[in-house]
């Protein structure tokens, strides 16, 4: 790759500005500003109902009514259909797993397969199985016959097959056993190591703290704090005010 005229840090891979979103007639998000630098892991934090999942869905093009701008490497993707956004390099891992239970592991991966665009890390079935050796041992098992933890891995693996540049992870630690939570944390760091950027929504401060570089706290659909993980840990009053710690 030739070097860009601007240093990487100055041009975020994902830049969201003045994002507003609605469910029906109810406005859920109010002027959200948010950036994600290359190779960065950012945690969207906040209470239940603060707008974390809605932000990820809005970015992914899964909501009917969204305003503002969402730029993926400079190109505005707001208002585009979800499949278009996925092909542009955004991978979405939903909160309740949503694997295709009637399909085998290999077929689940086949649904996620997309041609690689530009400089995103390239994923093949073999490389995905290297990251998730468990899945490699159950290629022909139907999704519905897998354990919760295995399903969680499959949702991520399936998304990687689309060769994304950015991954949106919705509540990866919610409702899973402590042991799986640790595996998820290790996996996020692996993905970061592979050169992916990750935006995750998370309520568990220990988990967010262990994997993220920065935190962005939402409250009632607005950004209340945006800064490094360290600065959040250093100011317990923010945690008390917005995270219910």
């Amino acid at each position: 790759m030739s070097t860009a005229s601007l240093p990487a840090a100055a041009s975020p891979i994902l830049a969201v500005s003045r994002l507003c979103a609605w469910y029906g007639r109810a406005q859920i998000l109010f002027d959200i500003d948010l950036t994600l630098a290359r190779g960065e892991v950012v945690a969207l934090m906040g209470r239940n109902g603060a707008g974390k999942s809605t932000t990820l869905k809005a970015i992914m093009g899964l909501l009917d009514r969204v305003q503002g701008s969402i730029r993926l490497e400079g190109a505005d993707i707001r208002g585009k259909p979800a499949w278009h956004i996925a092909r542009a390099g955004l991978g979405y891992v939903p909160e309740d797993r949503r694997i295709f239970t009637e399909l085998t592991v290999m077929e689940n991966l086949a649904v996620g397969r997309q041609a690689r665009r530009s400089d995103a890390p390239l994923w093949t079935v073999d490389k995905v199985f290297e990251l998730f050796p468990n899945l490699g041992r159950m290629r022909n098992r139907r999704g519905g016959e897998m354990s919760g933890g295995e399903q969680q891995m499959l949702t991520v693996a399936r998304t990687l097959m689309g060769n994304p540049r950015v991954i949106l992870l919705d509540e990866p630690s919610e409702g899973v056993a402590p042991l799986i939570v640790e595996q998820m944390a290790a996996m996020i760091l692996d993905l970061k190591h592979e050169g992916l950027s990750v935006l995750l929504s998370e309520q568990n401060p220990a988990f967010a703290g262990a994997v993220s570089d920065r935190a962005c706290i939402l409250e009632k659909g607005q950004v209340q704090f945006d800064g490094s993980m360290r600065s959040l840990i250093d100011s317990p009053e923010i945690g008390r005010a917005f995270l219910g710690l």
Binding site: M60, A86, R87, R98, N108, V111, G112, R158
Partner: peptide
């Protein structure tokens, strides 16, 4: 078959629904 189960997810995986 995937869309039969969850079409939104299929779309979010880059399939032009």
């Amino acid at each position: 078959r995937a869309a039969t189960q969850d079409r939104e997810m299929v779309s979010a995986l880059g399939v032009a629904e």
